[in-house]
Simulated scan of single mutants.
Amino acid sequence: MAETTLAQVRAELAALEDPKMRAINEKHGDDHGVNLSKLRAVAKRLKTQQELAAKLWQTGDTPERLLAILICRPKLFERDELNTMLREARIPKVQDWLINYVVKKSPHFEELRQNWFADADPVIASAGWALTTEKVAKNPEGLDLPRLLDTIEAEMKDAPERLQWAMNHCLAQIGIEHPEYRARAIEIGERLEVLKDYPTPPNCTSPFAPIWIAELVRRREGQ
């Protein structure tokens, strides 16, 4: 893909910048003002372009990186490439999309999950927990769920924010997906009170694990 095409795409993204949206996003640690629905429309038009995705990622700019994630081929990345990309992706939305749209589809999922889970950097560790939560829900074979609960119980209360969110999600997922550990997951959540008072919009489920677990179980059981 020619450099002029990269320049054209960057100009199109720049034109989508909205100062009001940037102000909102910056409250969540995201440094851009691009409407994500409009960004997705650009990606839909471009379709899959791995070479262009690589060039967009290398710009270092958040809208470009988000677009790169949407138009790349997840299975073409080597393990070390994904490891480097995650360590470059310090912006929450970039990290979230990289994990959910690329790493979760990668043949290197399990190796990266284990490596990141044990990382000393809490931001990287949060990615490991996110992948572990995915495994809890879809393929828990090989996971030591009681040990995960032990770790959450010991470390979640004082964990940095992004790591705490990831651990809390894992706690809720264990309670939702595994009835044999549900009571313990709820008890841990109630005792630690992490995100208990988090402001939750109407018609949205609280991230407080006991409420989250109860609501999702209720929906599944059709009560």
Rank of each mutant, 00 (worst) to 15 (best):
H178N: 14
I174K: 04
G142T: 11
M167D: 12
E141Y: 03
C170Q: 13
L163G: 11
Q164R: 15
K138E: 13
L163N: 10
P160R: 03
P140W: 00
P140D: 07
I152Y: 03
A159G: 05
Q164E: 14
P146I: 07
L143S: 06
R182L: 00
D158E: 13
L171C: 07
H178Y: 00
D150E: 07
A154E: 15
P179G: 12
Q173A: 15
L143W: 10
I152P: 04
W165H: 13
L148R: 10
R182H: 06
D158P: 03
L148F: 13
M167R: 06
G175S: 02
G175E: 06
E177H: 06
E155S: 10
L171Q: 08
I152F: 04
A154S: 13
E141W: 01
D144F: 10
R162W: 08
A137V: 03
K157P: 04
K138I: 04
P160Y: 13
L145P: 14
E177T: 04
P179T: 06
H169N: 15
R162D: 11
D144V: 07
P160N: 11
H169Y: 14
M167E: 15
L148G: 00
A137G: 00
H169D: 15
C170A: 15
N139Q: 14
Q164N: 10
I174D: 09
D158V: 04
M167Q: 15
Y181V: 02
E161T: 06
Q173N: 14
A154Q: 15
L145A: 02
L149G: 07
N139F: 01
A166T: 01
H178L: 11
R162Y: 10
E155V: 02
L163C: 09
R147V: 08
L143H: 10
T151N: 06
I152C: 02
P146H: 09
T151V: 10
M156W: 03
L148W: 11
D158Q: 12
Y181A: 08
